[in-house]
């Protein structure tokens, strides 16, 4: 099962850049004079790399949030980060700061995590469900603010906001994704470096404290790192939900080992999942691509429920 999964994943990654509205032939990608060359190197390959990095970052961020907040439901997105990014982007769009739009999204995501963290530090470690409720309350507050913005914006602005919330992997060239690649490498190395700490956090906060680690400092470092990389992702692709929630659960259910050993698999399969979703998005739309957020949820939600049912039956 495991090898089959890895093999399938590698095949998906390998065919992803070749398939789309225009199919590219392998022979043409090294021939500068062909159009295939440009499509492959300027559009398809950067897009697949972007999808992989963003998926990997979101999945790993989900794992970190679930571990630190000790709740299988908490991800940067269920706690309101995506809504924060969307609201700030909308503010940017409505008030005419279009050149800084990515920065606004980044600001919204990071600010939300900072708010969450300030509130979380007032709770005891065991009150994580309260934090989830805070996240939900924040999301509602953001939604209400967004409604106000919709109300005062014109048609063009409203459309731009709606498109942003659907998530998009449309980019041209590698220049716009270097930051995401760096972010992916950065978060993987930080989480890997803190693997032992994460393993201790998988028991209990008290136990981790007694085994000599500075739990507060560890949490600060991990959450800050995650908020920065998620902010970067959201600023480029818009909010892409669900990956951070389901990939860690799916990998755990399949591998049946403790989460600290699943850092690399969750990173890898998170990436593959988004590449696959993008592949579907690019190949099923009749006129243009289906928004990526739609595919992740359409594909992820039923599979997730299936896994939960299967697990429920066994225990």
């Amino acid at each position: 099962m495991r090898y089959l999964l890895i093999l399938t994943s590698l095949i998906i990654i390998a065919i992803a850049p070749f398939s789309g509205q225009i199919d590219i032939s392998l022979a043409n990608i090294l021939d500068v004079s062909k159009m295939d060359y440009q499509i492959f190197w300027d559009i398809r390959l950067p897009r697949v790399v972007l999808a992989f990095c963003v998926g990997a970052i979101l999945a790993l961020s989900g794992l970190v949030f679930q571990t630190i907040f000790r709740n299988p439901m908490s991800t940067p997105f269920t706690l309101g980060v995506a809504s924060g990014a969307t609201l700030f982007t909308a503010i940017g769009i409505v008030f005419g700061f279009l050149t800084f739009i990515s920065f606004f999204a980044f600001l919204g995501a990071v600010l939300t995590i900072v708010i969450l963290f300030l509130i979380a530090s007032r709770f005891h470690a065991t009150q994580t469900s309260s934090l989830l409720l805070v996240g939900i309350a924040l999301s509602f507050f953001y939604s209400a603010s967004l409604m106000v913005l919709f109300f005062i914006s014109d048609l063009q602005e409203s459309y731009e906001i709606v498109r942003f919330t659907m998530g998009s992997l449309d980019i041209v060239g590698f220049n716009s994704i270097y930051l995401v690649i760096l972010a992916a490498i950065f978060i993987l190395s930080i989480v890997k470096k803190y693997q032992y700490h994460i393993k201790l956090l998988l028991t209990s906060y008290d136990f981790a404290t007694l085994k000599g680690i500075d739990v507060k400092k560890t949490n600060y470092i991990l959450l800050l790192s995650v908020s920065i990389v998620v902010g970067i992702c959201v600023s480029i692709t818009g909010p892409i939900g669900f990956v951070g929630l389901i990939i860690p659960h799916i990998i755990k259910t399949i591998a049946k080992t403790s989460s600290d050993k699943l850092i690399v698999p969750i990173f890898f399969f998170g990436g593959v999942f988004l590449v696959l979703c993008d592949l579907i998005a690019r190949n099923t739309g009749a006129v243009s691509d289906i928004p990526i957020g739609v595919v992740t949820s359409f594909l992820g939600a039923p599979f997730f429920i299936y896994l939960l049912l299967k697990r429920g039956k066994r225990s």
């Binding site: 571990t67 000790r70 393993k199 956090l201 998988l202 028991t203 209990s204 008290d206 136990f207 007694l210 085994k211 000599g212 680690i213 755990k252 049946k256 080992t257 403790s258 989460s259 600290d260």
Partner: peptide, 22 residues
């Protein structure tokens, strides 16, 4: 770190674990 673990340990009355596969 070591400085702390060498000195004191507390064993609670029940085992609290978050991860279900550990």
């Amino acid at each position: 770190g070591d400085e702390k673990t060498k000195l004191i340990n507390y064993i609670p009355s029940y085992l609290e674990i978050f991860d279900e596969y550990l």
